[in-house]
């Protein structure tokens, strides 16, 4: 497989002219996903930022086929599109379902689970910006501990969201999926390589990409990529793969950068006390202890 990077990546754009906020990490992930998959791609997107910014009548930011699905049905619609293409005998295409964190971990979960169970030949791209951003920053199942959102306000009694992120990657892997991976727009070459792998896999593949949101997280727009990198370097996000029944940690840093540097750069975490931050670091260390013990073998 040719190594994908800025030099080897082609110059064509298949997701262009969209109306996402300046510095949107999610649109960066979509742009590269579509670049890897190519012009013969059929995309299914539920309600969410990416559907809202691409299909503003009469604008259409995808240069490929794409449609908006009911919120809960990304996996089912993508399965249907793949089945339709097969029935029509159209070969050499790729079907992708693209949903946010709420559309994946909460609302669209059963359709995703069903698609993996049927092992339909689709890619499911979960773009995780850790809250329902399109409707105005509400807490989702992938919002981490201590996040201030409009439905998990921070105050005297609570530090914002009090639950940790659902382990979507492990939940998906537990289905015995053909290929699953986590990625980050802070490590774009790694994300491109995982998209290319998912494209080559016959059967369902799932990519969970971590995408900062300047509007919902409250940071200057130019920091999107560096913040995504900081999340991985501080151990609050991880790069891993699940293939042929085996987990693999792609990045296992010897030491983490301080979580406070990453957290306090964003207004959604500004209220955190040193005790809250130590609690977040303890949760992080507990997760890494399990991942290293189970996945490094």
């Amino acid at each position: 497989m040719v190594k994908l990077n800025a030099k080897t990546l082609h110059n064509e754009e298949y997701f262009y002219g969209h109306k996402a906020c300046g510095g949107c990490g999610e649109s960066l992930a979509l742009r590269h996903a579509m670049k890897v998959l190519g012009p013969d791609t059929f995309a299914a997107l539920p309600a969410g930022c990416m559907a809202a910014v691409s299909f503003i009548y009469p604008n259409m930011a995808f240069t490929t086929n794409a449609m908006i699905t009911p919120f809960a049905a990304t996996g089912a619609v993508a399965s249907g599109m793949a089945a339709g293409l097969e029935a029509l005998g159209i070969e050499g295409t790729q079907t992708i379902g693209i949903a946010g964190d709420g559309g994946t971990a909460d609302i669209g979960f059963q359709a995703l689970s069903g698609a993996i169970d049927r092992n339909d030949d689709i890619i499911y791209l979960a773009t995780d910006n850790e809250a329902y951003m399109n409707t105005g920053i509400q807490k989702s199942g992938l919002t981490p501990y201590g996040t201030r959102t409009t439905t998990s306000p921070a105050g005297k009694n609570l530090p914002g969201s009090i639950r940790q992120k659902k382990n979507m990657f492990e939940i998906v892997a537990a289905h015995g999926i053909s290929y699953a991976a986590t990625a980050s727009v802070g490590y774009l070459e790694d994300f491109l390589m995982k998209m290319a792998k998912a494209k080559a896999v016959k059967g369902t593949s799932y990519i969970h990409v971590f995408v900062p949101c300047p509007t919902g997280w409250g940071y200057p727009a130019q920091q999107t990529v560096s913040l995504a990198k900081a999340a991985v370097d501080s151990g609050l996000w991880y790069l891993a793969e699940y293939e042929a029944g085996e987990f693999k940690l792609n990045r296992n840093p010897k030491s983490f950068t301080p979580a406070a540097d990453y957290l306090l750069a964003q207004s959604r975490f500004k209220h955190l006390t040193p005790e809250d931050i130590s609690r977040i670091e303890a949760q992080r260390d507990a997760k890494w202890e399990i991942m290293r013990r189970k996945w490094l073998g």
């Binding site: 800025a6 030099k7 997701f15 002219g17 510095g23 960066l28 742009r31 999107t224």
Partner: peptide, 17 residues
């Protein structure tokens, strides 16, 4: 000419052709 800007642009607005 490292093309980092081409890679990181969320809008794909940098053309390297």
């Amino acid at each position: 000419d490292c093309l980092k800007c081409f890679l990181v642009c969320p809008d794909g607005a940098i053309d390297k052709s």
